[in-house]
């Protein structure tokens, strides 16, 4: 426990169990480093590039044809808010790997607009991550990462790359955008891994 702040009692206590340092919000705040890109669906693509340089590409129409899942998950942003029970529709990341052969342990998620974030491949498979394109039954709004974003709810939400364009497979871990700017390489909210060294 930290030192007691004189005269502070706190007003936003809740009964739900949140990761350390987080508070509950009903809003859906936005964290991004720059302007919101607008990506037309007819040129949208999702590309996995393996460590050998092999490319696998999916168009929007192909994405829509893949079996999707509806998931309800809690999300935790490093700027301290948590939002419970968010509803998404998307294609599980494992589905893309049915067609991809890779020995890499790490993926760099790459976005339209240049954003990147690194995630271990094991954290993207087995029902832990989706390429999501609907939020609350609506098309995903651009400021929340539409047309499609990664959703990796068990890690801080900056790992859920907005405007996702693909994955670059890596044999060794490399820092992405926020990770280079001092944020944690893994980002587990329950261990409060906000910044490098946490």
């Amino acid at each position: 426990m930290g030192i007691v702040t004189p005269g502070f009692t706190g007003r936003r206590r809740s009964d739900v169990n949140l990761p350390p340092g987080q508070y509950l919000t009903e809003d859906f705040p936005v964290l991004s480093a720059g302007p919101t890109p607008r990506i037309p669906l007819d040129t949208w693509e999702f590309v996995i590039v393996t460590e050998t340089g092999e490319k696998h590409t999916w168009s929007w129409a192909q994405l829509m044809a893949m079996p999707s899942e509806d998931v309800t998950v809690d999300i935790h942003c490093v700027t301290k808010w948590s939002k419970l029970g968010t509803r998404w529709r998307g294609v599980p990341v494992s589905a893309f790997f049915d067609e991809v052969e890779t020995a890499a342990d790490f993926a760099m998620a790459v976005s339209y607009g240049g954003y990147t974030t690194n995630v271990p491949l094991d954290d993207l498979l087995d029902g832990q991550a989706w390429v999501a394109y609907k939020f609350d039954d609506d098309d995903l709004a651009p400021e929340h990462g539409g047309p499609a974003r990664l959703v990796v709810p068990h890690l801080y939400f900056w790992k859920s790359a907005k405007w996702v364009r693909g994955l670059r497979m890596m044999l060794e871990d490399e820092p992405g955008f926020w990770e280079t700017a001092g944020y944690h390489d893994y980002g587990d909210p329950w261990r409060e891994q906000r910044y490098q060294g946490d």
Binding site: G2, I3, T5, P6, G7, F8, G10, R11, R12, Y23, A33, F177, W178, T180, A181, G182, Y195
Partner: peptide, 27 residues
Amino acid sequence: DGEVSSYLAGPYAVGDPVELRGPVGGW
């Protein structure tokens, strides 16, 4: 109705301690 801002811009008084960490953000 802000939990932290109304404390810091309210009862928080000269001489009082508070915890902080940083600086954060290299972008």
